[in-house]
Nucleic acid binder design. Structure first.
Length: 271
DNA sequence: ATGCGGACCTGTTAGC
DNA sequence: TGCTAACAGGTCCGCA
């Protein structure tokens, strides 16, 4: 679920319900996420008011006067607004209980997600300080990608999925953007022209923005607790479509492995 | 510095 | 139908 558009959708969904609310307590049923949740969270966050809900890459930041909670949804994590005290299900690991009778509930079957607490500016945190540019910002542009990629042999797909280069482009959107730009996923990043990067940047932003717009459809249910998937799935061109005819040339879409991840592409349209 | 493979987990699906 | 293996939207870390 959590690609950047999903995280942004989550942020927009929860922000109105938790901004300006005071945290009364934190219930940690299972602290064993990707990193063990520190007991400092329990000691320091209750009593604090959440002033801002922001996002950096796929990290969500809940900022208070004393410090910030840094949340990552991993592969299978999700957040919901619930009535405080609602009975937890199997993978409901953490509740951040608010003073208005609601709670923010973190659910994550695979526990690849994480939750940190820091009293310093969150962008200085070890996990955030070396992140690459935001893909929807002006810093993500052809000059930037072109300059960073010179001399690099890494495949373009892995290059744009590297969070130290650009943060938030996951497996689905990497496949989709490369298809839309007509770039062969295994092409060395250092061999791609600035013009091609221009196109890649443009379609990357397009696909992410469209997905956020489609994710918005899920927003309402989100808070009500239905938790439906976003509707962007219907707009995918190559991801998960091995063997299906390319929408442009009818050639069957191929599936290969790159760095232990599935890559989908059209062998005719992507060179 | 770069690149690769392993690691962390559970649930679902594909294949025999 | 049932068992097993492979795979899943992420990304950090250690090693070559």
């Amino acid at each position: 679920m959590p690609e950047l558009p999903e995280v942004e959708t989550t942020r927009r969904g929860i922000a109105p319900y938790i901004t300006g609310k005071q945290v009364t307590r934190i219930i940690v049923r299972n602290p064993n996420l990707r990193w063990k949740v520190s007991t400092r969270l329990n000691r320091e966050m209750p009593g604090q008011t959440i002033n801002e809900v922001s996002r950096r890459g796929k990290y969500l930041l809940l900022t208070t006067g004393m410090g910030s909670a840094i949340l990552h949804l991993g592969m299978s994590g999700s957040l919901r607004i619930i009535d405080a005290g609602a009975p937890p299900n199997k993978h409901d690991h953490i509740d951040i209980v608010l003073d208005d009778g609601h709670a923010l509930r973190f659910t994550d079957p695979r526990r690849f997600g994480s939750l940190h607490w820091t009293r310093r500016p969150p962008l200085q945190h070890k996990l955030l300080c070396d992140l690459g540019v935001e893909p929807l910002s002006g810093e993500f542009n052809a000059d930037y990608l072109h300059a960073l990629s010179r001399g690099r042999k890494v495949a373009i797909k892995q290059f744009i999925m590297n969070s130290h280069i650009v943060t938030g482009i996951g497996n689905i959107y990497a496949c989709e953007a490369l298809f839309m730009a007509g770039i062969y996923p295994k092409c060395a990043a250092g061999r791609i022209s600035k013009n091609k990067y221009e196109l890649l940047v443009e379609v990357s932003k397009e696909v992410l923005n469209d997905a956020i717009a489609a994710g918005g459809t899920t927003l309402r249910d989100f808070v009500n607790g239905h938790g439906e998937p976003g509707y962007f799935k219907q707009e995918l061109h190559v991801y998960g479509l091995a063997g299906q005819p390319c929408i442009s040339c009818r050639e069957p879409i191929r599936e290969i492995r790159q760095g232990q991840r599935s890559t989908f592409y059209c062998p005719v349209c992507q060179k």
